[in-house]
């Protein structure tokens, strides 16, 4: 059961126009921002399938950059995030592909982001209604559910501590 809470259905409070192509993508970007602890200096963003076909109409690119800049789904600055990212000195590029080899869904993005010495590769899927999921971090499959109103900072921190324990164990 992917959908758990009444707020997965009623919500998020968000800027338009699409819950799956805008709001869900803001959360994926914001999760990466929280993982890095800051907005990345460089970001390579791959949009697959439906994202690749319709990103301009839905502002999917603005949504992802807004998230990477630390914005929430209802932040009215999202519509200006392409310019804001440049002002912040973020180097970004978008690539487009048909199908993703890691996960079967029409709404997928894989982002490689760099902040200082820290580089992460994160795969996210937007499931609809603003709900999304991180399924890949640095070539490892994960299952981190991102819902409206979740504390993404805490989720990213939890993941980092699990990862750290794992690294120390080996």
């Amino acid at each position: 059961m992917e959908f758990q809470s009444c707020f997965d259905i009623i919500g998020p409070i968000m800027v338009g126009p699409s819950s799956s192509h805008t709001a869900g993508v803001v959360s994926i970007g914001k999760f990466i921002y929280e993982m890095l602890g800051d907005c990345p200096q460089e970001a390579n963003i791959v949009f697959y399938d439906s994202f690749a076909e319709t990103y301009q109409g839905h502002g999917t690119d603005k949504a992802l950059l807004g998230g990477l800049l630390g914005m929430d789904t209802d932040d009215q600055r999202i519509k200006n995030s392409l310019e804001l990212a440049k002002e912040y000195g973020m180097q970004y590029q978008f690539e487009f592909a048909e199908e993703c080899e890691y996960y079967d869904h029409p709404n997928i993005t894989i982002v490689t982001a760099k902040c200082g010495d820290y580089v992460v590769k994160v795969g996210g899927v937007s499931l609809g209604g603003g709900l999304s999921k991180i399924f890949l971090i640095n070539d490892k499959m994960v299952d981190i559910r991102l819902s409206a109103g979740d504390d993404l900072k805490a989720l990213a921190r939890d993941y980092q501590s699990i990862e750290k324990e794992f690294m120390e164990a080996i």
Binding site: D8, I9, I10, G11, P12, I13, M14, V15, G16, P17, S18, S19, S20, T22, A23, D74, Q76, G128, G129, G130
Partner: peptide
């Protein structure tokens, strides 16, 4: 700003 019910 709107509320997704269930989507935007």
């Amino acid at each position: 700003v709107i509320v997704a019910t269930p989507t935007a």
